[in-house]
Amino acid sequence: MVFVKDWEDFEIAAEAMYMQNPKTCRYSMKYIHSKGAVLLKVTDNVKCIQYKAEIMPDLKKIEKFTGNLMGHMASRE
């Protein structure tokens, strides 16, 4: 349960984790309006990384990242 501070680090680590273990890897996001925060979590039951987004520009990055990951998940590999 590690909160990664830097977005780039999180993105790289998350994709690497998925590539390593696509079968059990899952990605979840939790939005808490009252706190104005989005919590991202990627885990493969062994490792777990998290990221806390509190500012607007992060949302754009999350959007792109989610699209990438969904593309990876729904593929022929």
């Binding site: 079968k23 890897c25 990605y27 996001m29 939790k30 939005y31 309006h33 009252s34």
Partner: peptide
């Protein structure tokens, strides 16, 4: 519904 005092979670997984 979750706006005022709650939160919601969305999970993505390969199927």
């Amino acid at each position: 519904q979750a706006r005022n005092d709650s939160s919601f979670t969305i999970t993505f997984k390969r199927f």
